[in-house]
Simulated assay, not measured.
Amino acid sequence: MKILTDFFQLFYPRLCANCDALLIKNEPILCTFCRHDLPLTNFDSYKENKVAKIFYGRIAIEKAYSLLFYRKDGISKKLIHALKYKGNENIGIFFGNWLGEMLKENKKFSDIDCIIPVPLHPKKKRLRGYNQVSKFGETIGKHLQIPFNEHLLKRISSSKTQTLKSRFERFTNNDTKFLLTDYTSLKNKHILVVDDVVTTGATLEACAKELQKTENIKISFLTIGYTELNL
């Protein structure tokens, strides 16, 4: 078996998703050097973090957390772009394992009942072939032994991608609409909504407003990246 693995590696080497260096056995997705270069937010050590503050006065949430700063031309942007547009869902699994292990250890999301990804519009999902945060959320769910459900929440409006919008448009965006297909199954539950990047929080806010049509529901947010806007 090792001979076959070595033979496969000869023609299809595993390369770092950032610097293209050859990965060694215990390096998934990133080489050790690039992993240490990731811009971690460390928001988990704050009593109040910047992600949660985005939603102050807008919508009631329990908790919010992002693993990385998402910066222009940075390593986190390159990774999420590859996850989102180049079909590299292993990046979602990589970050799902990272956050899943971290959250299992610190128990800060120990009361979550269900994980739901921010859904794509069906047309966009058909074009892309996948939802970039599905593997991410599913992997976290396996670590925390929490159900993952990507069918309860549907996106029913299609708007232009966030990358094509001006900063003001992203901040004021309220044209994204969602539909909860079952208003009873999440009653009295604490739901963790996962996404790739939070910028203004408009999309997550729209998801939460639809979910909050369920009686006595609690909502938290978790994303891979967080963008600091200079509006």
Score class of each variant (00 low, 15 high):
residue 226 Y to A: 07
residue 92 G to Y: 04
residue 116 I to V: 15
residue 135 K to V: 05
residue 222 L to Q: 08
residue 172 T to D: 02
residue 188 N to L: 08
residue 156 I to A: 03
residue 192 L to T: 03
residue 226 Y to E: 04
residue 107 K to F: 08
residue 223 T to S: 14
residue 140 I to S: 06
residue 112 I to F: 12
residue 9 Q to A: 01
residue 40 L to G: 09
residue 165 K to T: 06
residue 92 G to M: 04
residue 216 N to G: 04
residue 229 L to E: 14
residue 220 S to K: 02
residue 226 Y to S: 05
residue 4 L to H: 02
residue 209 K to A: 12
residue 46 Y to V: 11
residue 106 N to T: 04
residue 111 D to K: 13
residue 53 K to N: 00
residue 189 K to S: 06
residue 164 L to F: 10
residue 108 K to N: 07
residue 227 T to I: 15
residue 88 N to Y: 09
residue 206 A to P: 10
residue 132 Q to M: 08
residue 179 L to F: 12
residue 61 I to A: 00
residue 218 K to Q: 14
residue 5 T to I: 09
residue 156 I to N: 07
residue 75 I to T: 12
residue 143 H to L: 02
residue 66 S to W: 00
residue 95 F to W: 11
residue 175 D to A: 12
residue 110 S to Q: 14
residue 98 W to Q: 01
residue 229 L to S: 14
residue 76 S to R: 01
residue 211 L to M: 09
residue 193 V to T: 02
residue 47 K to D: 11
residue 226 Y to Q: 09
residue 183 Y to F: 13
residue 127 L to N: 13
residue 25 K to Y: 08
residue 110 S to A: 09
residue 110 S to H: 13
residue 155 R to Q: 11
residue 130 Y to K: 10
residue 15 L to D: 00
residue 129 G to L: 10
residue 176 T to E: 13
residue 210 E to V: 01
residue 224 I to R: 05
residue 157 S to C: 06
residue 194 V to P: 02
residue 33 F to H: 15
residue 226 Y to L: 13
residue 129 G to I: 10
residue 208 A to H: 03
residue 145 Q to R: 14
residue 36 H to C: 14
residue 76 S to K: 06
residue 22 L to H: 12
residue 33 F to I: 15
residue 132 Q to I: 10
residue 82 A to I: 05
residue 198 V to K: 04
residue 198 V to T: 08
residue 88 N to L: 08
residue 126 R to P: 07
residue 76 S to P: 09
residue 37 D to E: 13
residue 163 T to W: 01
residue 118 V to G: 07
residue 16 C to W: 09
residue 66 S to F: 03
residue 214 T to P: 01
residue 226 Y to K: 10
residue 172 T to H: 02
residue 217 I to G: 09
residue 182 D to K: 12
residue 8 F to V: 00
residue 151 H to R: 11
residue 129 G to F: 11
residue 13 P to E: 07
residue 32 T to Q: 12
residue 87 G to Y: 09
residue 138 E to G: 12
residue 80 I to Q: 06
residue 210 E to D: 04
residue 171 F to P: 01
residue 39 P to S: 06
residue 134 S to N: 15
residue 80 I to S: 10
residue 73 D to I: 04
residue 54 I to E: 00
residue 3 I to E: 08
residue 149 N to F: 01
residue 99 L to P: 05
residue 122 P to S: 12
residue 44 D to V: 03
residue 194 V to K: 00
residue 170 R to L: 01
residue 28 P to F: 10
residue 42 N to C: 07
residue 131 N to F: 06
residue 131 N to G: 09
residue 8 F to A: 02
residue 217 I to F: 07
residue 193 V to I: 08
residue 192 L to I: 08
residue 140 I to N: 02
residue 190 H to T: 05
residue 179 L to W: 07
residue 175 D to F: 03
residue 69 F to K: 04
residue 18 N to E: 11
residue 180 L to W: 00
residue 86 K to F: 15
residue 99 L to T: 00
residue 128 R to I: 08
residue 124 K to L: 11
residue 84 K to D: 08
residue 120 L to F: 05
residue 13 P to R: 02
residue 11 F to N: 03
residue 152 L to F: 03
residue 145 Q to I: 15
residue 6 D to F: 04
residue 41 T to Q: 04
